[in-house]
Nucleic acid binder design. Structure first.
Lengths: 125, 125
DNA sequence: AAAAACTATTGACTTTTTGTCTATAGTGAC
DNA sequence: GTCACTATAGACAAAAAGTCAATAGTTTTT
């Protein structure tokens, strides 16, 4: 399977969440943030907060923290409910670079397919 | 979530197999083929037959047939074991066009992320 | 001040997907 | 006939992703 597609254990390998997690690392390299704010920021990359269950985002953040790519702490300075503020760790920066490269590879694979499709369409018509 | 990411039932929505199935439809628009031959043809799109279990390919073909996007028949003309020859149906052609468009969208989303990453890297250094 | 509404996070449950392993079955070679 | 090879199919298990509901503190409303 194509590079960037992972190798994969059952149900696993490259996951749907990969793109989202990469977006999160990028956002956190820009500035630290918490669940709800990151949710809004994801808009920039085509996500639509209204249409997604935010649990998925929280799970992604927890997974990233378990992997040591982000770190979190409770911020009590804010008004309103307590927020768990996330920020990027040095390993997170490294992973971000790698993941971006992986997505770049994936983009190239899609481009190959697009090109092939254009050729087929031309030969058929 | 980004267009091209499906909406999704549990564990579902946009699946890992989406890219592979689109490749298969494209290959079948070029010419009909069977399991093992398609496996080889997938090389063009970055797949590595040695490293993947062919069951996955067969399942993909059966799924596509269930969805009416391809049709199959036993070819007895060949020497060697019987082969199930697959070919693209008209609905399959339509889906192929849609799926390519969906992947195009996905590629654009990746490009957005790549661009954003370049900007962040520049501002950090 | 009690109730309601909102922000924020977490955890349990369920379905679907996906990878692996094994079974079947025909064909050609020795 | 047995063995190896090509080709396809099915069962099983593990993991991921989606939904739903629970918790908990904080403003706002009445």
């Amino acid at each position: 399977m194509p590079a960037g597609f992972g190798q994969g254990r059952p149900g696993g390998g490259r996951r749907k969440m990969f793109f989202m997690e990469t977006c999160l690392l990028l956002l956190l390299q820009r500035a630290s943030g918490y669940g709800y704010s990151l949710m809004e920021d994801l808009r920039e990359f085509g996500f639509q907060p209204e249409q997604m269950d935010i649990s998925i985002l929280y799970r992604a953040l927890r997974d990233l923290e378990t992997a040591g790519l982000v770190r979190s702490s409770w911020s009590d300075e804010s008004l309103g409910p307590q927020r768990r503020m996330y920020s990027l760790t040095p390993p997170g920066e490294t992973s971000l670079a790698e993941w971006i490269e992986s997505l770049r590879q994936r983009r190239r694979e899609i481009e190959t397919l697009e090109t092939a499709y254009e050729r087929v369409k031309k030969s058929v018509s």
